[in-house]
Design a protein around this nucleic acid. Structure first.
Lengths: 162, 162
DNA sequence: GCAGATGGTTGCTTGATGCAACCAAGTGTG
DNA sequence: CACACTTGGTTGCATCAAGCAACCATCTGC
C-alpha cells in the first residue's frame, strides 16, 4: 500500500487497513508480539524480502505501532518493540487467528493455541479467557503449539522434529 | 495477493491473511455486511477499479466467503451475500474498527458506531454489547453514523449534507 | 587477517493494481 | 423503431510495490 489510501471511505476499518492492511504488516506485528524483535529473526521467521521488511518496519514505526530501541552502541543494533498502539492490535489478531482456526485448520485442529498466562485457559475469538472469563489483553496471553502443530509444520515444508 | 502465500508460516493468522489480507477484500466484506450487494453499489461505495472488484469478488466466492445469487434472469443480474464463513469475519472487522476508532479517529469521535440492534447498546472492541453484555454476531449489530461522521465526510471530500 | 554474524541498501524483474475504453443485454422514451 | 441509459462486467495498457539476489558496512571470534 505505502502511500495508498482508500479515498472516500468514512469507516475506521478503512483507516486501520491503510496502516496495517499491507501484505506483511500484521504478520510482523504478530511476530514481534511473539518475541521476535530483531531484523534477522523477523526475516527468517517470516521469509519476507529484506528490503520489504525494512520498509514495513519503518512504516510501522512511523505509524507509532513499533518502537526501535538500541540494545548496543557499536555496531548500532536495534530491537523492535510494540507500542501500546501496537499491542492494541491484539484483539484483531486473535479474531483473525480464530477465524483461520475455525475455517482453515487441518483435521488435527489449530496449529497454535492462545492461552491465558495466569490460569492456562484457552482464549476465545473475542480475546476472553474461557476458563476464568477475564477480558484479556496482549500481555495476558501466550502462544503455545496446538494439536495441529506437527502436521502444519510438515505442510510448511519443515522436517518433523525427531 | 492472489496466488501468493506465506510459505513456512504455521500460524492461522497467516492462513487468514492469505484469504482476506488482500488490499480490498476486508472492505468488500464489510460493505456487503452493510447491505451493499451489487457490483455497481460496491464499486461506487469503495472506489475500487472494476476489474479488481471483479477479481476480488470471484476470489471471495472461491474461498466460500461470498455467495452469488441471481435476482433476475435476463439480463443475468446477481447479488452478493456473505456465507456463514464470511459472517464469521465480523469479530475481526469489529476489532479493526475499534482499533481505528481508538487511534485514528478525529477530535469529534468515531465516524461510525456499531450498536446492538435489539437494545441499542454500543458494541465493544470484543463485539460484546456494553448495554446488555451479550456476545454478538454479525446479524445482531447495525452500523449507524457516529459523532465524527460529518467531519469524516468532509475530509473524504464529499459535500456536507445541508 | 579472514570468516562469519548482523542489519541493512541497491538494482532488476515480475506481477498486482488503477484507469479508461469497450462490450453486451435489457429498459425506458418519444 | 431509434436512441440513450443502466447494469455488470472484460480487455489493454501504464505504474508501482513486492520478490530476489547481490552488495555494503561494522563488529566479533579464531
Amino acid at each position: 500500500m505505502l502511500g495508498h489510501s482508500y479515498p472516500g471511505q468514512i469507516c475506521s476499518i478503512a483507516k486501520s487497513l491503510e496502516v496495517i492492511g499491507e501484505r506483511w504488516s500484521l504478520l510482523i506485528v504478530r511476530d514481534v508480539m511473539n518475541g521476535n524483535r530483531r531484523f534477522g529473526e523477523l526475516q527468517r521467521s517470516l521469509g519476507i524480502a529484506r528490503n520489504v521488511l525494512s520498509a514495513r518496519l519503518q512504516r510501522l514505526i512511523d505509524e507509532g505501532i513499533l518502537e526501535r530501541r538500541a540494545y548496543q552502541e557499536s555496531p548500532p543494533r536495534h530491537e523492535y518493540f510494540l507500542t501500546e498502539k501496537g499491542l492494541d492490535l491484539w484483539p484483531a489478531l486473535i479474531a483473525l487467528l480464530s477465524w483461520g482456526d475455525r475455517h482453515s485448520a487441518g483435521a488435527d485442529g489449530p496449529p497454535m493455541l492462545i492461552v491465558h498466562k495466569r490460569c492456562g485457559g484457552r482464549v476465545s475469538d473475542r480475546g476472553i479467557c474461557e476458563e476464568c472469563g477475564q477480558t484479556l489483553h496482549a500481555r495476558d496471553a501466550a502462544q503455545v503449539p496446538g494439536p495441529g502443530f506437527n502436521s502444519a509444520l510438515a505442510a510448511a515444508g519443515h522436517a518433523e522434529p525427531s
